[in-house]
Computed example of a mutant assay.
Amino acid sequence: MVVAVWMALSGNALAHSFTAALIVADDNREASLAEAVRGFLLAADERDGHANETSDGHLGGVDVHVLPLPRDAAGSVEGLIGKPTEPGDVVVVLGTEPAASEAARKYQSNSTVLLQVVLPVGWDSDVGTDSFVARYRLAYGTAPGLMAATGYHAARRLDVAIRPLDGVIPRAALEDAWRSTSSGLPW
């Protein structure tokens, strides 16, 4: 299965907070969206956490609020804090082509779009994934699937890209930082 992750950046983020909207464009989108959000949340909870969280976690040292879209597919998503509004400062679309491109078009006006390469078959046998799989099992009681791993990987890439910027703007710098994270991230 080819999984595309697109990100559309609107530039409306506050200095220390942004909203990441996650969209899954496939046939089983409710279950896939819940799995992608769980993977994303696991990464957002790994660093910079603190007591009395008012966000869904941190990426790049910045509070992140997760917005599962479309709302009618978010029924299985649990554990989110707050009710961010659409479209989100970062829109991540996961799915097979051409459905992912079609879903991304809705958010492309005045936005920058980035593509993540699909995780390879056998991602879970790569060096270092044991730690991710164990953390996911501990948090959710089940092994992660492709969408959980893809959501986790997208969040890790965002963490690395955002950290030196302290936010999701300037857009060009975030695009460059995102491109530099295309490979070699530890699990």
Rank of each mutant, 00 (worst) to 15 (best):
A44E: 03
Q108Y: 01
A143V: 05
E86T: 14
D26Y: 00
D89V: 09
T181Q: 13
V66C: 11
K106V: 15
G167K: 01
T112E: 11
D48S: 15
H50N: 11
V90E: 08
V93H: 06
L14M: 13
Y107C: 10
V37W: 01
I23D: 06
D27N: 09
D45I: 00
V90Q: 02
D166Q: 12
R71H: 13
R135L: 12
L138M: 07
T142I: 08
Q116I: 02
G88W: 03
A21C: 08
R29Q: 12
M1C: 07
T85P: 00
A99L: 09
Q116V: 06
V64M: 09
E102T: 13
D26T: 09
V168W: 01
R163V: 05
E86V: 15
V77E: 04
E46R: 11
S55Q: 00
A43F: 02
W6K: 04
L119Q: 08
E102D: 15
S183N: 10
L41H: 05
D56G: 06
P170M: 10
V127K: 09
G39F: 05
Y152W: 15
V3H: 09
N28K: 09
T96Y: 00
D56M: 01
T96Q: 05
S55G: 12
E53K: 11
D72I: 00
V5L: 05
L146C: 05
A172R: 04
E30P: 10
V3A: 10
L22E: 01
D124C: 00
A99R: 06
G184A: 04
L42I: 08
N12T: 14
R163M: 05
L41Y: 01
T129K: 10
I162L: 13
R179K: 13
A177P: 04
G57P: 03
D159Q: 05
P164S: 13
A143H: 10
N52R: 12
F40E: 03
V113R: 09
R156F: 02
V24R: 03
T181G: 08
V127I: 12
L115V: 07
L115N: 13
R156Y: 02
Q116L: 08
T150Y: 09
A21M: 07
F132W: 05
F132Q: 06
T19D: 12
Y107D: 12
F132S: 08
T54Y: 05
E78K: 11
S32M: 05
V3P: 00
S183H: 04
G95L: 09
M1K: 08
A36L: 10
A31S: 15
H65D: 14
D166A: 15
D166F: 03
L115W: 11
T96R: 06
R29Y: 03
S10A: 14
L14K: 14
G60M: 04
Y136A: 07
A20G: 04
V121D: 12
D176C: 04
W6Q: 10
K106I: 14
D56F: 01
V160R: 10
A74E: 06
P164M: 15
A104K: 02
A143F: 00
V118G: 14
P98C: 09
L158E: 04
S182G: 13
S32L: 00
R156G: 06
V121L: 07
D89L: 08
V62A: 08
L59N: 03
